[in-house]
Design a protein around this nucleic acid. Structure first.
Lengths: 91, 91
DNA sequence: TCTTATACCGGTATTAGTATCACGGGCATG
DNA sequence: CATGCCCGTGATACTAATACCGGTATAAGA
């Protein structure tokens, strides 16, 4: 084994992450935010739907800038469960 | 063409990014920080040397947590030139 | 000198992120 | 009703990130 496959926990974290982005997007359209962040709309959709659970750092940074949200809050929020309780790390 | 190859600008940004991490690491060893962040030492080395210019968001988040640094400051710092001036975006 | 620890480098294998293409649904306007 | 436009989606293609292995160099210490 070379590259560790994503664990279920990581995929769930990706779903929470995407939900946060979609919530932050609000009324604005995908293409609008994607264009503002400089990524393709399909990429944004995959991230929001959790199908790209571990996006690139600068992709997230650009999206966060377009959405005017904090990276630290974003990382902290999706490292917690949907109920807000701290999540047990897999390793 | 499907996935756009990394531009020279992105690679340079990756080098600045790695330099920031290395500077923040200070005296501590690579394996120590890598273990604390839950990534392999090779991955941390590649990121620090700029050979992995666009690491995953959660990888960076874990490293930043291990180094006790802010993701927002990190993203803001490496989006600027080494001299501190704002960098022109490629797109 | 020999061992140990750290870091760098090259190669290799495998998974995942990102972009393009093609398709269908909703909605307005002709 | 037909046409176009925007949004979202599924399939496909290609590159990059991550991890493991072996080798090399350097410095510290027994």
């Amino acid at each position: 084994m070379v590259r560790t496959p994503l664990t279920p926990w990581e995929r769930q974290r990706g779903e929470r992450f995407g939900s946060l982005l979609r919530q932050a997007r609000g009324e604005r359209s995908m293409v609008e935010i994607a264009a503002a962040a400089g990524v393709s709309a399909e990429t944004l959709r995959k991230i929001e739907t959790g199908r790209a659970p571990t996006p690139a750092f600068f992709t997230v940074a650009a999206l966060a800038a377009a959405l005017e949200m904090s990276l630290d809050e974003l990382a902290g929020a999706c490292s917690k469960g949907a109920d807000g309780r701290a999540q047990a790390l897999p390793a």
